[in-house]
Simulated assay, not measured.
Amino acid sequence: MFSKIAAVATALVVLPLAITPASAHQLRSDALPMAAAVDLLPSAAESREGYQRTSFKHWIDADRDGCSTRAEVLISESRVQPTIELGCKVTAGQWYSFYDGVTATAPGGLDIDHMVPLAEAWDSGASAWSPERREAYANDLDAESSLVAVTDRTNRSKADQDPAEWLPPLLDARCSYTADWIATKLRWKLAVDDRERAALTEIAAGCGQESITYEAAP
């Protein structure tokens, strides 16, 4: 994967390539078995009352370098040097959509997925956050698991569903997907309801080799 090393300044730019609940939200966790990580998730009933997608301002240019969050993810996740036009418009690269195992070379068929969808985050605790914290969540570039480039069809199939309702169609992706889901919820101290916890526990039982690390969000 490649990282952006400078702001776009010309018409065409190519860029190079055993823990207790009390310590659950330390700055950075040790590697946790998936089942142990599930146990750390807080429980709460979910409510979508008052939710609007506009409550989460996203695809901003947080560092004011000319590239939106969407562009930043595309640049970071490209497996080859991405081509970027004036205005930080990413026009070519190579992306692996791990939900369905598809490799794409044009960004037009890709969505940037919030690992834990905005509506699900709202249901799970973000409804009580400030607008600034919701904006930080929706544009979280500091954890690789938070945002991911995937084919638009799988992202739209997922919609706002949790792992009790939707898992990636590629079977080999399900353990890593669930690990990323759990890490994101732990990072942002988001809760799970009973049905979601049961699904995560069942998945974790079949993913014995998967471990989870996360860094608590500021």
Rank of each mutant, 00 (worst) to 15 (best):
Ile5Pro: 00
Ala204Gly: 08
Lys185Gly: 09
Ala143Arg: 11
Leu190His: 07
Ala136Gly: 13
Glu46Trp: 13
Leu147Asp: 09
Ile182Cys: 12
Tyr51Gly: 06
Ser176Thr: 10
Glu77His: 03
Gln81Ala: 14
Gly50Tyr: 03
Asp30Gly: 14
Ala35Gln: 07
Thr154Arg: 01
Glu144Met: 09
Asp142Gln: 13
Gln52Phe: 05
Gly93Leu: 04
Ala136His: 09
Met1Lys: 11
Ser211Cys: 02
Leu167Glu: 00
Ala9Ser: 14
Val8Asn: 01
Ser130Cys: 04
Arg79Ser: 12
Val8Ala: 01
Leu27Ser: 15
Val8Asp: 00
Phe56His: 05
Arg153Ser: 14
Ala119Gly: 12
Asp180Tyr: 00
Pro163Arg: 12
Ser29Arg: 11
Asp193Ile: 04
Asp61Ile: 02
Glu210His: 00
Leu186Val: 08
Leu171Glu: 14
Pro168Thr: 13
Arg28Gln: 15
Arg79Val: 01
Ala164Met: 05
Thr105Gly: 02
Pro107Cys: 07
Ala198Phe: 06
Asp194Phe: 03
Arg134Ala: 12
Ala106Thr: 08
Ala35Ile: 06
Ala179Lys: 04
Glu135His: 03
Asp142Glu: 12
Pro16Phe: 03
Ala44Asp: 14
His25Cys: 08
Ala35Met: 04
Ser124Glu: 13
Phe56Cys: 09
Gln26Cys: 12
Asp61Glu: 11
Arg195Cys: 03
Ala198Cys: 04
Leu15Glu: 12
Thr20Ser: 15
Phe2Ser: 15
Trp122Gly: 07
Arg48Glu: 13
Trp188His: 14
Val80Tyr: 08
Ile112Leu: 14
Gln26Leu: 15
Ser130Met: 05
Asp30Ser: 15
Tyr99Glu: 00
Ile203Lys: 03
Ser3Thr: 13
Ser76Glu: 08
Leu27Cys: 10
Asp30Pro: 11
Ala6Val: 05
Glu135Thr: 15
Ala204Met: 07
Ala44Phe: 07
Ala11Tyr: 09
Tyr96Val: 03
Glu132His: 05
Pro168Asp: 01
Arg156Asp: 13
Pro82Met: 09
Glu202Lys: 14
Ala104Asp: 04
Ala217Trp: 09
Leu41Trp: 10
Gly108Ala: 06
Glu135Met: 13
Thr201Asn: 10
Glu49Leu: 11
Glu72Val: 02
Val102Cys: 05
Glu132Phe: 02
Tyr214Lys: 06
Ala24Glu: 06
Arg64Met: 12
His114Asp: 11
